[in-house]
Nucleic acid binder design. Structure first.
Lengths: 204, 204
DNA sequence: TGCTGTTTCTGTACCGAGTCCAGAAAGTCT
DNA sequence: AGACTTTCTGGACTCGGTACAGAAACAGCA
């Protein structure tokens, strides 16, 4: 938790600068059509510094999504420990989904429409999926009274529920300009998963 | 459905040649440690011809998986049309899983253990997931009596059930040398998903 | 004022995946 | 002998990502 460094050369650039330059270029040329060099040139920094702020070009597509997803641990942590696991996870995911509305549409969504067939997105998408799934699986496994012999069931539930949520997000994204809030989509998609796993995962 | 071409220069290479060369090198140097040039050099062809047979280096990791997955349309097609969708899909996936046993372990699995943290696999994995999910979703939507207003539920089910199956496959892969058949893993993982979606998707 | 340590920034060189393309090679069919 | 068709080859190229050495810009301290 280091705040602003007092020593060393002060930063002349920032994630925000690069994100902004990238946003402009994505609108003009699409994601696939702009190179990292284009972005840094517009931002007025060297190509190398880009990698001081982002590990990957595709990270730019997911900045908004990642920001929303960052709230997951907190949402999981503040769940009632008495609740069944499945409903706890459902609540956490719905809280997360509530962060996304018509006003906040990530690049990954808009560029999805443009890229269509391109598999550019796919590669980076699974990385997010796995992170989220992993967090949920940890949460499930850490629940009091969770038997180790149900490990597979726990992981299956985590994967299934996150995949359902992702499917909902995709549908929401595909809804175009008329999409409203994300939460109802997610609720409809994940509820059956939760109810299906409830007898398996919840001891009573 | 063109059989053997009668015209043009006959092929001097084949997918099998490249797969074999690649297999050897993966054992010696791991996947990440071998370049496409290494593979084609050993196979005795030029680097360019590689791309006549594979679109991507990572395709090599999935040859066995893809071969198994190719049976999905057939497995879905021969389902009893009277069955509820959810149990039909469950049967189809179990048939598919039956194709994988201890004797047939894809590269994607073995190299997974080696690569561990590396995200090499991730990128190519989602492509497969999406294909399978898409097929299942089509099947669900094409069922007689499937109302269009349940579109989201259908897609959510497809994603969730395939994700659960994938989680089972991952667990199976992680079981190492002692892994037996894949099917029981998959059954345990997808059954709750199917039972959860049954009241939503099946009209009666 | 200068020295030291720390951090950011830059330039360059490098690697490997994937694309493009012009042309050679090796057949079959008139 | 062409003409046609397909595979194969080699080279040049783009782009994402890595490695690294050194410059730039500060703070603190002598």
């Amino acid at each position: 938790m280091s705040f602003s460094r007092t020593t060393g050369r002060p930063r002349q650039s920032s994630r925000a600068m690069l994100e902004e330059a990238a946003s402009e270029l994505f609108l003009e040329q699409t994601y696939a059509g702009t190179t990292i060099g284009d972005i840094t040139r517009r931002a007025g920094v060297s190509r190398t510094t880009f990698f001081n702020y982002f590990a990957t070009k595709s990270d730019l597509l997911w900045v908004d999504v990642d920001a929303g997803l960052a709230a997951l641990p907190a949402a999981l942590a503040q769940c009632d420990r008495a609740e069944p696991v499945t409903v706890a996870v459902r609540h956490a995911l719905l809280t997360l989904a509530a962060g996304f509305g018509p006003g906040r549409v990530p690049w990954a969504v808009t560029q999805y429409e443009v890229m269509a067939t391109e598999g550019e997105l796919e590669s980076s998408a699974l990385a997010r999926f796995l992170v989220v799934t992993g967090r949920v699986a940890e949460f499930v496994a850490a629940r009091p009274g969770f038997a180790a012999d149900r490990d597979l069931a726990g992981r299956a539930f985590s994967s299934a529920v996150v995949a359902a949520a992702a499917a909902a997000a995709a549908e929401w994204a595909a809804a175009g300009v008329h999409r409203g809030d994300l939460a109802p989509y997610v609720d409809l998609a994940i509820s059956p998963v939760c109810s299906g796993f409830r007898p398996v995962l919840d001891p009573r």
